[in-house]
Write a protein that binds this DNA or RNA. Structure first.
Length: 902
RNA sequence: GCACGCUUAGCUCAGCUGGUUAGAGCAUCUCGUUUACACCGAGAGGGUCGGGGGUUCGAAUCCCUCAGCGUGCACCA
């Protein structure tokens, strides 16, 4: 018999176990013939190292995948990384700046900077991949993908061309979000709103201008071309349609047209707003509406891409920064006594999530994806596709419906679609997929992945490629199928798409989930995944987000080195609910580590007693099973069913809780302890290993390393990672359905607990051996013979009992303490001296009071006619039994109180 | 402003479609080194399930309402 080392050392074990898995290629689905189950790993950004959030994702994902793999499915977890366009470039530029290269783009140029970024990306890719392995994630490394590799490049180009040909991608001049610091556009989703104090100025453009307006951005007023009021606003109706020419210092006198627009709230401020089409998305919308109505207003750009005032803002303003211009304009208003009011308010401003600066609205020529346009041949827009995938199913097919867990995110998602504008996909940064568009000097625009040979309209052979790159989410949107070799019709693509499951944090719902749905339904006419599980964010013990700047960052690798991966995984998955944030702190990991230790010791004990046999070798002999054998078999049967159900429904936390309770309480504290005193050792030697095997397998998806290590130490014939997940069916033949085995076992265990409780309450030292009487005349199911058979168990299980007397007839009770179990068995302890201190008495009196209250509540319930007529029979019967037991327990307390009185 | 959550033991959280005296882990207190485990064992204390109202024989669970906290979207005149 093999012996496990006294302590489990994850540090000395985990890497070897992972190497073992890799060597066997057991994570490659090609070796399995079952029903496909695929998960595409959300590719981490190559911006550095993985954080705790990644550890959570890997734990969730890997638990699910291991479970399905053990269920015999052809399981693929496809690993990958994301080039993370802006994020990575911003990160590398920051590093370069800290190294003294203050203007990386100008100083290095495109080629050199790209080289730097690539080196950084490759480096961090390496780190990330090794970290994923450290976390025990069971991915098929032979299918490793990268959003920026050649295969994904082809997919990106193919999709771009398809969208362009369908007219869904267009190049247009529109107001976009512009980060001055990053010198790039960003999508609406890439804005982070922060609240900051601002001043709201109320003024009129000129003395004779009839409508006052308010603004927090006075400098942009140099580009105003209209004043908008609500069409029904009686105050201003007479001015609608009129144009006023005012001179506020801009290059040309402003022609302010009074326009009517439904979006104006007449009760807010002055009920009128100055329209700056060039520097506000809302105002730009009005500008578009006016044009559509045939009443165009002008558009004057007064801020340039560097955040400086343009020539159009007037000679006094040209070249000034936005802040300088604001000050100047306000003092001009003041001097001209046009300023009516100045008040301090709180204001939300959009900042770039990557560069951190306040984003300016600027009109520019960019590439957009039209989300409202009808897709040729579809009679639907991209928006419709995005909506349908989660409502009626793609193509109204219920089998192509995405289920979002928890459901609340479905509403959030649909609400977001409502407000969705065209998606600006071009970026002015350099790290990313270059827009595959080439311009000929003749004005022709060609879509091509590489430089075209010659122009289709003028035969010229010289082209300029569009300088911009694509939003990183364009390529991640293709992830579920680009990773499978699409646009080739590969076997992988046919087998594994749509993927079965996806998990992600709620912060990337719109960035990623939405775009995957858009791309997949449009490009390949399939949903990207069937189920999506949204997890919450990890926070520190004070509820704060983890971040480097807050200084509360925890490196998962540090935790792994200290406590092991299994402990980290277990602690991350414990106590989480889908969509809810959870707190992470070291005590939780310690608890998980302790559990891993416990499992190790359980295994160590069983291994020292018996060697692992396969079920084919030796069959359990039914007749040799004790009540407790049957009890644990029944509980095992039950735990397998309920853990499977939890995992099938992504209730990781609940599954862990049940397994934890079963392992530590039912199995270790009761069954193993009892097994030490039962004589059917031959049967125990068969049954213990069988139970241990299934226990390890049940735990394996959560804590893969320690379970595999024990498994290997015990019987190295096969890897646990590809062994079947326990089947409850196996235990059915050993479960007694007609006799109430668990109740007998429960009764014995309860008697033991009762004795222990009495000992503690009475402060009886362990070396004091006591004798007890057991009265089961009114027990619900026990007989004295049954109880006598378990006398040795009761005596041996930390009860300190030397003698048990079974009461079969009425006898005179000595000075006693009696306690009745819920099974109706009364344990009587006779002592010469009972504790009589007032504290013990008070406690008992309190207990009695509680009991009496409970009894009268039950009595009321049972005498309530409505209850008796309306409630189901089994509920009523249950209440009656409860009442019976409660009465007996109350009597015990009364007797006890009487006894200590004398 | 609109929408969606959350509020359960000192702490962190479970509690599915309403039905045992509302659970777990940690922490606390008491006792204990019994041959797998002190990263342990045995026992105990601790909650009027945010407030109010309603539906029901029965509500932590369903409905309404109020309060506090949080998130998303919009606004950012």
């Amino acid at each position: 018999m093999k012996e496990l080392p006294k302590n489990y050392s994850p540090q000395d074990t985990e890497d070897q176990i992972y190497a073992l898995w890799e060597k066997s290629d057991c994570f490659n689905p090609d070796h399995i013939d079952g029903e496909p189950f695929s998960v595409m790993m959300p590719p981490p950004n190559v911006t550095g190292v993985l954080h705790l959030g990644h550890a959570l994702e890997n734990s969730i994902m890997d638990t699910m995948v291991r479970y399905e793999r053990m269920n015999g499915k052809k399981t693929l977890l496809l690993p990958g990384t994301d080039h993370a366009a802006i994020a990575t470039q911003a990160k590398v530029e920051k590093i370069l700046i800290s190294q003294g290269i203050l203007h990386p783009r100008e100083e290095l140029g495109r080629e050199k900077l790209l080289h730097e970024i690539k080196a950084f990306a490759e480096d961090s890719k390496k780190t990330i991949l090794s970290q994923i392995k450290k976390m025990g994630t069971s991915c098929d490394w032979s299918r490793l993908a990268y959003t920026f590799d050649d295969a994904r490049n082809i997919a990106v180009f193919t999709v771009f061309k398809k969208m362009f040909d369908d007219g869904l991608i267009y190049r247009g001049h529109r107001v976009v979000n512009w980060s001055i610091k990053g010198q790039s556009t960003c999508s609406d989703e890439e804005l982070e709103y922060i609240e900051r104090p601002a001043k709201l100025y109320t003024f009129t453009y000129a003395k004779d201008f009839p409508i006052p307006i308010a603004t927090t951005r006075p400098e942009t007023k140099l580009g105003d071309t209209a004043v908008a009021v609500h069409p029904n606003d009686t105050r201003y109706q007479k001015y609608i349609g009129q144009t006023f020419t005012v001179n506020v210092g801009a290059k040309n006198p402003l022609k302010i047209k009074v326009i009517a627009d439904d979006s104006v709230d007449p009760s807010f401020g002055t009920g009128a707003l100055g329209v700056t089409p060039a520097h506000s998305a809302i105002d730009y919308d009005m500008y578009t509406r006016q044009r559509a109505q045939g009443n165009p207003i002008e558009l004057i750009q007064v801020i340039d891409q560097n955040g400086a005032m343009t020539e159009l803002s007037g000679p006094e303003y040209t070249g000034l920064s936005v802040e300088q211009a604001r000050e100047k304009f306000v003092s001009w208003l003041r001097e001209s006594t046009l300023l009516l009011k100045e008040e301090a308010i709180m204001q939300n401003v959009g900042t770039s999530d990557r560069f951190g600066d306040i984003v300016e609205a600027i009109p520019m020529t960019q590439w957009f994806i039209d989300v409202n346009k009808t897709i040729p041949g579809k009679n639907k827009s991209l928006k419709d596709l995005m909506r349908e995938a989660v409502t009626i199913g793609h193509n109204a097919d219920p089998n192509q419906k995405i289920t979002i867990c928890p459901k609340k995110f479905e509403k959030i998602y649909l609400n977001w679609i409502e407000n969705l504008r065209d998606w600006c996909v071009s970026r002015q940064i350099w790290w990313g997929h270059r827009i595959p568009v080439w311009y000929c000097s003749c004005g022709e625009m060609l879509i091509s992945q590489t430089q075209p040979a010659h122009c289709t309209s003028c035969t010229s052979t010289t082209f300029i490629q569009d300088a911009d790159t694509l939003d990183t989410w364009f390529s991640s949107g293709l992830w579920t199928f680009s990773t499978l070799g699409w646009p080739e019709e590969t076997p992988d693509f046919k087998t594994f798409h749509p993927s079965n499951w996806m998990q992600m944090g709620h912060e990337i719902l719109f960035f990623w989930m939405a775009r995957m749905i858009l791309m997949s339904t449009y490009v390949i006419d399939q949903i990207p995944f069937k189920d999506v599980y949204i997890h919450g964010m990890l926070r520190d013990e004070n509820g704060k987000k983890f971040s480097k700047s807050a200084g509360n960052n925890i490196d998962p690798i540090d935790i792994i080195e200290k406590f092991g991966t299994d402990a980290l995984r277990l602690s991350l998955l414990s106590g989480i609910a889908p969509g809810n944030d959870s707190k992470f702190y070291e005590e939780k990991v310690i608890g998980a580590r302790n559990f891993v230790s416990k499992l190790w010791n359980i295994s160590r004990f069983i291994m020292s007693k018996s060697k692992l046999t396969t079920t084919q070798d030796q069959k359990i002999k039914r007749d040799d099973l004790t009540v407790f054998d049957k009890m644990i078999i029944q509980k095992m049967h039950h735990v397998i069913i309920s853990v499977r159900k939890d995992l099938d429904n992504y209730r990781f936390s609940q599954a862990i809780e049940k397994l934890h309770h079963f392992t530590w309480n039912d199995f270790a504290d009761w069954y193993i302890e009892i097994s030490k005193f039962e004589s059917n050792t031959a049967t125990k030697q068969i049954i213990l290993p069988i139970l241990l095997k299934d226990l390890l397998a049940l735990w394996h998806p959560f804590i893969p390393f320690v379970t595999e290590e024990i498994w290997q130490q015990y019987s190295a014939d096969k890897l646990l990672a590809i062994s079947p997940y326990p089947n409850a069916q196996f235990y059915i033949p050993y479960i007694d359905t007609h006799t109430d085995i668990t109740s007998t076992a429960d009764m014995i265990m309860e008697i033991i607990s009762t004795i222990r409780t009495i000992r503690q309450e009475q402060n009886i030292t362990p070396d004091t051996k006591i004798s007890i009487m057991i009265d089961n005349r009114k027990s619900l199911l026990g007989t004295t013979e049954v109880l006598s058979a378990y006398e040795h168990i009761i005596k041996n299980l930390r009860t300190g009992i030397t003698k048990i007397e079974f009461i079969t007839a009425d006898i005179a009770m000595p000075s006693t303490i009696a306690k009745t179990t819920t099974h109706g068995v009364t344990v009587i302890l006779s002592l010469n001296t009972l504790i009589k201190d007032t504290r013990a008495r008070e406690k008992k009196e309190k207990e009695l009071l509680k009991m009496q209250k409970y009894i009268s509540a039950l009595e009321n319930k049972l005498s309530n006619e409505s209850f008796v007529t309306h409630a189901p029979k089994d509920i009523i019967a249950g209440e009656e039994t409860k009442l019976k037991t409660a009465k007996k327990q109350a009597q015990d307390i009364v007797t006890y109180l009487d006894n200590i009185k004398t």
